[in-house]
Design a protein around this nucleic acid. Structure first.
Lengths: 246, 246
DNA sequence: TAGATTGTTAATCGATTAACAATC
DNA sequence: TAGATTGTTAATCGATTAACAATC
């Protein structure tokens, strides 16, 4: 009997895993449908991991939810609620073992598995992303950069080869690459996404302003830098002009 | 009588404006406390603006909430709910005038006022942000880039002068600059933020992994690229390994 | 008019916070 | 033991969605 499992993303904040099996007439039957960790929680767990690693570097052995909360910028309740998603081992009076909790969070986030990534676009943003990769955990490995600009193709950026865009589908399929980063012009985004998904990609980090059309099994994280800029501009207030005469 | 008004940010998703006046003993008395547009709504309004401008370019004169919703990737209810925040002018049967709605959204977002910005950090990420500025509305104007690296100071990047970090406070004060972008090492972030806030900055776009400590009147938008990467890696699933034998 | 859409209020949904028994 | 913290359930809060009267 062949079982199949896949993520399903509901909106942008909720994820579900489906385990299905084929019925006699060929249709799929849902066996298990588990609510799993949603993107917000994953984000906070990543932050806890950073904080925990820093604590370990400082030689601190144990930590309370209150302290972890303060350092991560969230509430103590939130920390304990989130830690319910990982196999916790805290004790009253003693809090959590930094070493054990770090391990539990890392296991939960699956940061132990090597995840190959492709980057689309070798412009300034693409290069900045490559630069960021120096700081990531070693489980994320950049496989190649794809560009249409013939002046860049064949070179290396941060030791990563820049390949022609036409090689994208083959490369992704051959390397069974599941993760892609979009740092190309918004007009080219959807077309590239169609190729990526057809080649097996299931998780996309989208730095373009385009709204991507993808099947529900594919995860999309939008990081719209222009939107961030516009929002920050909106909330800027000139304190020097804040006083008005009535 | 001197009135004073200021934003107040509650958590990361809610903003309030306070209008206060001094009492006889010098304390401030709250006159009006208005719930105003929260960051999520501001983000969606920015997206609507983009969509509307594109529609105008295509020569389309009128639009229904249903169509706007589809193009922005949200629900029709959400569109109408958001448009309640701007002075709307839609009519049943005819929907919204693209030109009028664009104008109303732009007015609401305050995109008419020139907003000067400083950028901290001239590394690869800083340069990518400068590159993004080409695409922004002309109301956002980059004033200067600040760096500690003496090899960069004195040069120009994208026609913007790179100044020494020691000139930051004076420059921000002299130019009454309210908005700053952080693209420097996380270890230097808080120290820089303290200088910025003391110099009058009220709105910060933080690209570092640091959690910033700021007074509640200051808006902080965190854009943690490493977190985005980690989240995307988490949801990647290898479809080729999705089939398991039971 | 009939039908469809707006503007707005009510209902739902989900995420965060509070509370508290169990425990060290 | 007394006091404080965990793990978890219940309550709250806020955001999104649905519903619907008013309207063109």
């Amino acid at each position: 009997m062949t079982l199949k499992f896949q993520w399903l993303f509901l909106g942008s904040e909720q994820a579900v895993i489906l385990i299905t099996q084929p019925t006699q007439n060929g249709a799929m039957m849902v066996l298990i449908s588990n609510n799993l960790i949603n993107p917000r929680t994953v984000g906070r767990l990543s932050i806890y991991r950073r904080v925990l690693i820093q604590l370990a570097n400082e030689g601190i052995m144990r930590v309370f939810s209150r302290d972890l909360a303060k350092m991560a910028g969230v509430s103590p309740s939130q920390v304990r609620q989130d830690l319910m998603k990982v196999s916790t081992n805290g004790t009253p009076q003693n809090g959590y073992s930094v070493a054990e909790l770090t391990q539990a969070v890392i296991t939960c986030l699956g940061t132990t598995k090597i995840t190959p990534v492709v980057l689309l676009g070798a412009g300034p943003l693409g290069q900045a992303i490559l630069d960021c990769f120096k700081a990531t955990q070693p489980n994320l490995v950049m496989s190649a950069v794809f560009e249409v600009n013939p002046n860049m193709v064949g070179k290396h950026l941060y030791d990563i080869p820049v390949l022609d865009f036409s090689m994208l589908a083959n490369h992704v399929q051959a390397g069974r690459i599941q993760t892609a980063i979009l740092a190309l012009p918004a007009e080219e985004a959807q077309q590239a996404v169609d190729i990526l998904i057809a080649s097996g990609v299931s998780s996309i980090l989208n730095f373009t302003t385009a709204r991507l059309q993808v099947p529900s099994r594919v995860f999309v994280e939008n990081n719209d830098i222009l939107l961030s800029l516009e929002r920050v501009a909106f909330y800027a207030t000139d304190t020097a002009e804040e006083k008005v005469r009535a």
